[in-house]
Each structure stands twice: as structure tokens, then as C-alpha cells.
């Protein structure tokens, strides 16, 4: 923790860390707060048919912002993105298939226990 280490460390930061400034992160947080307020607004006002899609879009945007900026994925090595996105996409595909199968394909009408279905 002597000064030599510190300055050396700062020199090192410059080439690998292209994140935002502190103020930049605060701005991102404010944006996230606003998006959350928008989400919560759907509870107080009726948005009709656009409510669910807009909530999903807001969720994805917030998710994306936190992952890209707070978790640095936008600035960091692609290896991290591959690892994380593989898990994320796999989870979405697999559980979407499972949910579809269980919610829509199972026990269709006109199908009794003896039939092949």
C-alpha cells in the first residue's frame, strides 16, 4: 500500500479498464431507478394489453444495463460473455421448451388416457 504500488496500479488500470466514471455509474443507477418507477407505474395505472409486453421489455432493458455496465461485460473480455450468455440462453431455451410442453402441449382436448398422447 505504499505509494509506489499505488501509482503502478493506476498505470495498470488505464489499459484494461474502460468502465464508466463514478458519475457515469450514478447516472446509470438513476436510469435504472426511472425504469423501475415505470415498471411500478403499471401497478397503479391500467395499461391494458401492452402491460405485460412493456414489463418484459423493461425487465430485459434493466437486466441488460446492469450486466453491461455494472458487471462490466460490455468492456470486458468476450470469454466472460460467452460463459454467461451460454448459461443464460440455455436456461431460457430449455425452460421455455419445458414450460411450453407443460402448459400447452400436455393433455390436449380430445385426448383420452388410452390414446397415444
Amino acid at each position: 500500500m505504499n505509494t509506489a504500488t499505488v501509482s503502478e496500479d493506476e498505470g495498470h488500470q488505464e489499459h484494461h479498464d474502460h468502465g464508466l466514471s463514478d458519475f457515469g455509474y450514478i447516472k446509470v443507477a438513476i436510469l435504472l431507478g426511472v425504469l423501475t418507477a415505470l415498471e411500478v407505474a403499471t401497478y397503479f395505472f391500467d395499461f391494458g394489453v401492452v402491460e405485460t409486453p412493456s414489463l418484459l421489455i423493461l425487465m430485459v432493458v434493466k437486466f441488460q444495463i446492469v450486466v453491461s455496465y455494472f458487471m462490466h461485460l460490455k468492456f470486458d473480455s468476450k470469454v466472460f460473455s460467452y460463459l454467461f450468455v451460454t448459461g443464460l440462453v440455455l436456461a431460457m431455451l430449455v425452460f421455455a421448451a419445458m414450460g411450453t410442453s407443460m402448459a400447452f402441449w400436455q393433455n390436449p382436448s380430445g385426448c383420452d388416457a388410452s390414446a397415444f398422447c
Binding site: W105, Q106, N107, P108, C111, C117
Partner: peptide, 8 residues
């Protein structure tokens, strides 16, 4: 198991 024809 009763997966339904589409799933199968």
C-alpha cells in the same frame, strides 16, 4: 408420460 402429440 402424457407429453402430448406435439411434444412427442
Amino acid at each position: 408420460s402424457g407429453l402430448g402429440p406435439v411434444g412427442v
